[in-house]
Nucleic acid binder design. Structure first.
Lengths: 139, 139
DNA sequence: CCGGAGATTAGACAAAGTCCAGATTGCCTA
DNA sequence: TAGGCAATCTGGACTTTGTCTAATCTCCGG
Protein backbone atom coordinates (compact mmCIF):
# COMPACT_ATOMS: atom_id res chain seq x y z
CA UNK A 1 0.00 0.00 0.00
CA UNK A 2 2.34 2.63 -1.30
CA UNK A 3 1.24 6.10 -0.26
CA UNK A 4 1.16 8.06 -3.49
CA UNK A 5 1.82 11.59 -2.49
CA UNK A 6 2.25 13.79 0.51
CA UNK A 7 0.41 16.81 -0.75
CA UNK A 8 -1.30 19.05 1.77
CA UNK A 9 -4.66 17.77 0.54
CA UNK A 10 -3.72 14.21 1.21
CA UNK A 11 -2.47 15.22 4.65
CA UNK A 12 -6.00 16.24 5.62
CA UNK A 13 -7.19 12.73 4.84
CA UNK A 14 -4.30 11.17 6.69
CA UNK A 15 -5.09 13.22 9.76
CA UNK A 16 -8.78 12.42 9.61
CA UNK A 17 -8.05 8.73 9.27
CA UNK A 18 -6.11 8.98 12.51
CA UNK A 19 -8.94 10.75 14.26
CA UNK A 20 -7.26 14.12 14.17
CA UNK A 21 -9.11 17.28 13.28
CA UNK A 22 -7.18 18.65 10.28
CA UNK A 23 -6.50 22.28 11.02
CA UNK A 24 -4.24 24.49 8.97
CA UNK A 25 -1.32 24.21 11.39
CA UNK A 26 -1.63 20.46 11.76
CA UNK A 27 -1.65 20.01 8.00
CA UNK A 28 1.50 22.10 7.69
CA UNK A 29 3.29 20.14 10.36
CA UNK A 30 2.26 16.81 8.91
CA UNK A 31 3.34 18.01 5.51
CA UNK A 32 6.75 19.03 6.84
CA UNK A 33 7.33 15.58 8.27
CA UNK A 34 5.79 13.37 5.62
CA UNK A 35 6.83 15.14 2.46
CA UNK A 36 10.42 14.87 3.61
CA UNK A 37 10.19 11.35 5.02
CA UNK A 38 12.94 12.29 7.44
CA UNK A 39 13.54 12.38 11.13
CA UNK A 40 12.98 15.92 12.33
CA UNK A 41 13.32 17.54 15.71
CA UNK A 42 10.67 19.92 17.01
CA UNK A 43 13.01 22.78 16.20
CA UNK A 44 13.42 21.70 12.63
CA UNK A 45 9.69 21.30 12.21
CA UNK A 46 9.27 24.85 13.54
CA UNK A 47 11.81 26.13 11.07
CA UNK A 48 10.25 24.38 8.08
CA UNK A 49 6.71 25.39 8.92
CA UNK A 50 7.65 29.01 9.43
CA UNK A 51 9.97 29.56 6.45
CA UNK A 52 7.87 32.05 4.51
CA UNK A 53 6.07 33.88 7.26
CA UNK A 54 5.61 32.99 10.87
CA UNK A 55 2.53 30.82 10.94
CA UNK A 56 2.73 28.45 13.83
CA UNK A 57 3.80 28.99 17.39
CA UNK A 58 6.24 26.91 19.37
CA UNK A 59 3.49 25.69 21.70
CA UNK A 60 1.45 24.46 18.78
CA UNK A 61 4.36 22.59 17.25
CA UNK A 62 5.01 20.79 20.53
CA UNK A 63 1.32 20.14 21.17
CA UNK A 64 0.80 18.86 17.67
CA UNK A 65 3.79 16.54 17.68
CA UNK A 66 2.61 15.07 20.96
CA UNK A 67 -0.85 14.66 19.51
CA UNK A 68 0.52 12.90 16.43
CA UNK A 69 2.53 10.63 18.72
CA UNK A 70 -0.55 9.82 20.75
CA UNK A 71 -2.57 9.00 17.67
CA UNK A 72 0.15 6.79 16.27
CA UNK A 73 0.91 8.99 13.31
CA UNK A 74 4.59 9.39 14.14
CA UNK A 75 7.16 7.74 16.37
CA UNK A 76 9.53 9.32 18.84
CA UNK A 77 13.20 8.50 18.45
CA UNK A 78 15.45 9.07 21.41
CA UNK A 79 19.06 8.89 20.33
CA UNK A 80 20.45 12.32 21.02
CA UNK A 81 20.48 13.41 24.63
CA UNK A 82 19.72 16.98 23.66
CA UNK A 83 16.63 16.56 21.53
CA UNK A 84 13.88 14.20 20.47
CA UNK A 85 13.35 13.27 16.83
CA UNK A 86 10.00 12.53 15.26
CA UNK A 87 9.77 9.79 12.72
CA UNK A 88 7.00 9.70 10.12
CA UNK A 89 7.75 6.04 9.43
CA UNK A 90 5.68 3.97 11.86
CA UNK A 91 6.29 0.61 10.25
CA UNK A 92 8.58 -1.61 12.33
CA UNK A 93 12.15 -0.54 11.92
CA UNK A 94 15.33 0.28 13.77
CA UNK A 95 17.78 3.12 13.54
CA UNK A 96 21.29 3.84 12.49
CA UNK A 97 22.73 6.92 14.10
CA UNK A 98 25.88 8.60 12.85
CA UNK A 99 27.28 10.06 16.00
CA UNK A 100 29.47 12.78 14.47
CA UNK A 101 27.00 14.13 11.95
CA UNK A 102 23.81 13.44 13.87
CA UNK A 103 22.39 11.75 10.78
CA UNK A 104 19.69 9.23 11.51
CA UNK A 105 18.52 6.56 9.08
CA UNK A 106 16.24 3.55 9.10
CA UNK A 107 16.93 -0.15 9.23
CA UNK A 108 14.03 -2.28 8.10
CA UNK A 109 13.00 -4.54 10.97
CA UNK A 110 12.16 -7.43 8.67
CA UNK A 111 15.82 -8.16 8.01
CA UNK A 112 16.77 -8.15 11.68
CA UNK A 113 16.13 -10.91 14.19
CA UNK A 114 16.26 -10.40 17.91
CA UNK A 115 15.93 -13.43 20.15
CA UNK A 116 16.51 -14.38 23.74
CA UNK A 117 14.84 -11.42 25.34
CA UNK A 118 13.83 -12.22 28.90
CA UNK A 119 10.27 -12.78 30.04
CA UNK A 120 8.62 -9.63 31.31
CA UNK A 121 7.50 -9.33 34.90
CA UNK A 122 3.79 -10.02 35.38
CA UNK A 123 1.41 -7.31 34.34
CA UNK A 124 3.97 -5.60 32.15
CA UNK A 125 3.60 -5.24 28.42
CA UNK A 126 6.13 -4.21 25.82
CA UNK A 127 5.51 -0.78 24.45
CA UNK A 128 8.31 -0.96 21.94
CA UNK A 129 11.77 -2.25 21.24
CA UNK A 130 14.27 0.33 20.13
CA UNK A 131 17.43 -0.86 18.50
CA UNK A 132 19.96 1.82 17.75
CA UNK A 133 23.23 1.17 16.00
CA UNK A 134 25.62 3.97 16.79
CA UNK A 135 28.31 4.41 14.18
CA UNK A 136 31.08 6.88 13.52
CA UNK A 137 33.74 7.62 10.98
CA UNK A 138 36.81 5.44 11.45
CA UNK A 139 39.64 7.29 13.16
CA UNK B 1 36.74 -11.45 38.10
CA UNK B 2 34.30 -10.36 40.73
CA UNK B 3 35.08 -6.92 42.01
CA UNK B 4 35.16 -7.33 45.78
CA UNK B 5 34.18 -4.00 47.15
CA UNK B 6 33.47 -0.47 46.08
CA UNK B 7 35.18 1.29 48.95
CA UNK B 8 36.58 4.74 48.33
CA UNK B 9 40.08 3.26 48.54
CA UNK B 10 39.35 0.80 45.80
CA UNK B 11 37.88 3.60 43.72
CA UNK B 12 41.27 5.30 43.60
CA UNK B 13 42.77 2.18 42.08
CA UNK B 14 39.92 1.83 39.63
CA UNK B 15 40.41 5.39 38.48
CA UNK B 16 44.16 4.99 38.16
CA UNK B 17 43.72 1.81 36.16
CA UNK B 18 41.63 3.83 33.72
CA UNK B 19 44.22 6.52 33.45
CA UNK B 20 42.29 9.00 35.57
CA UNK B 21 43.95 11.10 38.24
CA UNK B 22 42.05 10.16 41.40
CA UNK B 23 41.07 13.40 43.05
CA UNK B 24 38.75 13.67 46.00
CA UNK B 25 35.76 14.69 43.91
CA UNK B 26 36.32 11.99 41.31
CA UNK B 27 36.54 9.34 43.99
CA UNK B 28 33.28 10.51 45.51
CA UNK B 29 31.53 10.46 42.17
CA UNK B 30 32.87 7.03 41.26
CA UNK B 31 31.86 5.80 44.69
CA UNK B 32 28.32 7.12 44.24
CA UNK B 33 27.95 5.24 40.97
CA UNK B 34 29.76 2.00 41.71
CA UNK B 35 28.72 1.37 45.29
CA UNK B 36 25.12 1.52 44.17
CA UNK B 37 25.53 -0.36 40.88
CA UNK B 38 22.63 1.63 39.52
CA UNK B 39 21.85 3.95 36.66
CA UNK B 40 22.10 7.50 37.92
CA UNK B 41 21.48 10.82 36.26
CA UNK B 42 23.89 13.71 36.72
CA UNK B 43 21.38 15.24 39.09
CA UNK B 44 21.21 12.16 41.23
CA UNK B 45 24.99 11.92 41.36
CA UNK B 46 25.07 15.55 42.49
CA UNK B 47 22.57 14.81 45.23
CA UNK B 48 24.40 11.75 46.51
CA UNK B 49 27.79 13.38 46.50
CA UNK B 50 26.55 16.44 48.33
CA UNK B 51 24.34 14.82 50.98
CA UNK B 52 26.32 15.78 54.08
CA UNK B 53 27.83 19.08 53.05
CA UNK B 54 28.18 20.62 49.64
CA UNK B 55 31.42 19.25 48.29
CA UNK B 56 31.25 19.17 44.55
CA UNK B 57 29.97 21.71 42.05
CA UNK B 58 27.63 21.03 39.20
CA UNK B 59 30.33 21.78 36.66
CA UNK B 60 32.62 19.20 38.21
CA UNK B 61 29.94 16.53 38.23
CA UNK B 62 29.27 17.06 34.55
CA UNK B 63 32.95 17.28 33.65
CA UNK B 64 33.74 14.17 35.63
CA UNK B 65 30.95 12.09 34.19
CA UNK B 66 32.09 13.06 30.72
CA UNK B 67 35.64 12.14 31.63
CA UNK B 68 34.55 8.75 32.95
CA UNK B 69 32.63 8.19 29.75
CA UNK B 70 35.65 9.07 27.69
CA UNK B 71 37.88 6.71 29.61
CA UNK B 72 35.40 3.88 29.34
CA UNK B 73 34.60 3.73 33.02
CA UNK B 74 30.87 4.23 32.55
CA UNK B 75 28.33 4.08 29.75
CA UNK B 76 25.77 6.64 28.76
CA UNK B 77 22.19 5.45 28.50
CA UNK B 78 19.79 7.56 26.49
CA UNK B 79 16.25 6.45 27.14
CA UNK B 80 14.59 9.43 28.68
CA UNK B 81 14.42 12.53 26.51
CA UNK B 82 14.86 14.77 29.52
CA UNK B 83 18.04 13.38 31.02
CA UNK B 84 21.01 11.11 30.45
CA UNK B 85 21.73 8.17 32.73
CA UNK B 86 25.19 6.91 33.55
CA UNK B 87 25.74 3.22 33.87
CA UNK B 88 28.62 1.79 35.90
CA UNK B 89 28.19 -1.57 34.19
CA UNK B 90 30.32 -1.53 31.06
CA UNK B 91 30.03 -5.22 30.24
CA UNK B 92 27.86 -5.89 27.20
CA UNK B 93 24.23 -5.59 28.11
CA UNK B 94 20.95 -4.06 27.08
CA UNK B 95 18.28 -2.16 28.93
CA UNK B 96 14.76 -2.54 30.10
CA UNK B 97 13.00 0.73 30.71
CA UNK B 98 9.77 1.01 32.65
CA UNK B 99 8.16 3.99 31.04
CA UNK B 100 5.82 4.97 33.86
CA UNK B 101 8.23 4.69 36.75
CA UNK B 102 11.41 5.59 34.91
CA UNK B 103 13.07 2.50 36.32
CA UNK B 104 15.96 1.20 34.25
CA UNK B 105 17.42 -2.27 34.56
CA UNK B 106 19.93 -4.43 32.74
CA UNK B 107 19.51 -7.32 30.35
CA UNK B 108 22.61 -9.46 30.00
CA UNK B 109 23.74 -9.40 26.39
CA UNK B 110 24.87 -13.02 26.44
CA UNK B 111 21.31 -14.27 26.42
CA UNK B 112 20.24 -12.09 23.51
CA UNK B 113 21.04 -12.62 19.85
CA UNK B 114 20.77 -9.95 17.23
CA UNK B 115 21.26 -10.91 13.61
CA UNK B 116 20.66 -9.50 10.20
CA UNK B 117 22.05 -6.04 10.79
CA UNK B 118 23.05 -4.41 7.52
CA UNK B 119 26.61 -3.85 6.38
CA UNK B 120 27.95 -0.46 7.39
CA UNK B 121 28.94 2.10 4.78
CA UNK B 122 32.65 2.18 4.06
CA UNK B 123 34.86 3.84 6.63
CA UNK B 124 32.24 3.60 9.33
CA UNK B 125 32.67 1.62 12.50
CA UNK B 126 30.14 0.62 15.10
CA UNK B 127 30.49 2.50 18.31
CA UNK B 128 27.80 0.57 20.07
CA UNK B 129 24.46 -1.13 19.74
CA UNK B 130 21.79 -0.02 22.13
CA UNK B 131 18.79 -2.22 22.57
CA UNK B 132 16.08 -0.77 24.75
CA UNK B 133 12.93 -2.62 25.64
CA UNK B 134 10.29 -0.15 26.70
CA UNK B 135 7.63 -1.64 28.95
CA UNK B 136 4.71 -0.36 30.92
CA UNK B 137 2.07 -1.58 33.29
CA UNK B 138 -0.82 -3.23 31.47
CA UNK B 139 -3.86 -1.01 31.26
C1' DC C 1 -26.10 36.35 14.90
C1' DC C 2 -24.68 33.93 19.19
C1' DG C 3 -22.43 30.61 22.17
C1' DG C 4 -19.21 27.34 23.15
C1' DA C 5 -15.75 23.79 22.39
C1' DG C 6 -11.59 23.14 20.52
C1' DA C 7 -7.37 25.16 18.75
C1' DT C 8 -3.76 28.55 18.76
C1' DT C 9 -0.87 32.08 20.72
C1' DA C 10 2.82 34.90 23.26
C1' DG C 11 5.55 34.81 26.59
C1' DA C 12 6.90 33.47 31.28
C1' DC C 13 8.91 29.61 33.27
C1' DA C 14 11.61 25.17 34.37
C1' DA C 15 15.29 21.81 33.97
C1' DA C 16 19.45 19.93 31.95
C1' DG C 17 23.61 20.96 30.49
C1' DT C 18 27.60 24.24 28.90
C1' DC C 19 30.96 27.73 29.47
C1' DC C 20 34.25 30.76 31.47
C1' DA C 21 37.40 33.32 34.24
C1' DG C 22 39.19 33.13 38.59
C1' DA C 23 40.53 30.36 42.82
C1' DT C 24 42.46 26.14 44.72
C1' DT C 25 45.21 22.05 44.85
C1' DG C 26 49.02 19.13 44.60
C1' DC C 27 53.45 18.41 43.12
C1' DC C 28 58.15 19.42 41.52
C1' DT C 29 62.36 21.77 41.97
C1' DA C 30 65.61 24.73 44.05
C1' DT D 1 60.59 25.78 52.95
C1' DA D 2 59.24 28.75 49.04
C1' DG D 3 57.88 29.43 44.49
C1' DG D 4 55.90 28.10 40.31
C1' DC D 5 53.22 25.42 37.26
C1' DA D 6 49.66 22.45 35.47
C1' DA D 7 45.63 20.29 36.52
C1' DT D 8 41.43 20.67 38.78
C1' DC D 9 37.50 22.81 40.78
C1' DT D 10 34.13 26.52 41.44
C1' DG D 11 30.09 29.87 41.19
C1' DG D 12 27.31 31.74 38.35
C1' DA D 13 25.82 33.41 33.96
C1' DC D 14 24.10 31.53 29.94
C1' DT D 15 21.77 28.39 26.28
C1' DT D 16 18.56 25.12 24.75
C1' DT D 17 14.68 22.21 24.87
C1' DG D 18 10.45 21.78 26.35
C1' DT D 19 6.18 23.02 29.47
C1' DC D 20 2.51 25.87 31.19
C1' DT D 21 -1.05 29.31 31.35
C1' DA D 22 -4.31 32.64 30.49
C1' DA D 23 -6.04 35.14 26.79
C1' DT D 24 -7.59 35.07 22.15
C1' DC D 25 -9.21 33.12 17.88
C1' DT D 26 -11.97 29.98 14.79
C1' DC D 27 -15.58 27.57 13.31
C1' DC D 28 -19.79 25.24 13.51
C1' DG D 29 -24.61 24.31 14.96
C1' DG D 30 -28.80 26.37 16.19
Amino acid sequence: MARMDYTRDNMAGLLRSHDINPTHQRIEIAHALFSRQEHLSADQVMAFVNTRHSETSKATVYNTLKLFLDKGLVREVIVDPSKVFYDPNTSPHHHLYEVDSGKLSDIDARSVQISGLPQLPDGMVTEGIDLIVRVRRQR
